[in-house]
Amino acid sequence: MKLSLGPIQYYWPVETVQAFYKQARDWPVDIVYLGEVVCSKRRELRLLDWLEIADKLEAAGKEVVLSTLALMEAESELITLQKICENGDFKVEANDMAAVHLINSRPFVAGPHLNLYNASSLELIRENGAVRWVMPLELSARTLGELQAGRPEGLETEVFAYGHMPLSFSARCFTARAHNVPKDQCELRCIDYPDGMPLQTQEDQELFTINGIQLQSGLPSNLLGEIESLRQLQVDVLRLSPQAEGMQQIVAAFDGALKGEQNDAMTALMAADTKWCNGYWHGEAGMLNVNAVLK
């Protein structure tokens, strides 16, 4: 199995993004997804800046994929999408059928938001040029097993294996709402929350994470304890979603698990006092942490 770094879901200053990927050149990840996937108002980096980072990562031996927005409404967003789809150098991850339409049968990655829930959908995107698909977040190991049995030839499977899961997108900005400002005067407040804003119940349960127009899970999904079942299901790529703190350790933990080692990073990630979830993988509510036994 290969490891990938998913797209950065948060809004980080350009220097932070550049420093992050400079480090990532030396990390044991095979694939890096780059680009803005949440909000088109986030313009710390332009396409040329992303392409510059992409070239350096490629030179360091990484496969680079340019990721795209999951919600596109404005014409300006479609123009940017078209530029990305026609970049000519790097594969694109489609997170909306608009991208599939513009990619026009060139090889691409079908992202987690395309809603591919069955074999017929997989055949459809394979026919349209997909060479890899990312499983929808809410599917279980059991369902993945059934999908893998009928997977079209030439289509790799990627699973979201660590990080705060993107659960929904809206026309509203919840970060702006939390600051009591309208979305058109948001002042890009989300740049102050490099790992999002925690949203808790009135009983202090970590429920969601606010990230601009996106809501994420309150707990990170963690499939480190599921490596054997992922392998048995012939998953090709494990996606690790970037976070501001501790990313290197997360990568080290998964790298260790794939090599069959036991290292400190793995122990830390699985420690009893850290909060994470794996419910979806076990066919349960996503927020639950189910003992790592494949049903």
Binding site: L71, H113, N115, Y117, P136, E138, F169, G283, A285
Partner: peptide, 21 residues
């Protein structure tokens, strides 16, 4: 519905069941 319909799985995150599934 304030979320993009078809791209919201808040419900299954908490209950295991969503509009999609």
């Amino acid at each position: 519905c304030i979320m993009v319909e078809g791209r919201c799985i808040l419900s299954s995150y908490v209950t295991g069941e969503s509009p999609n599934t």
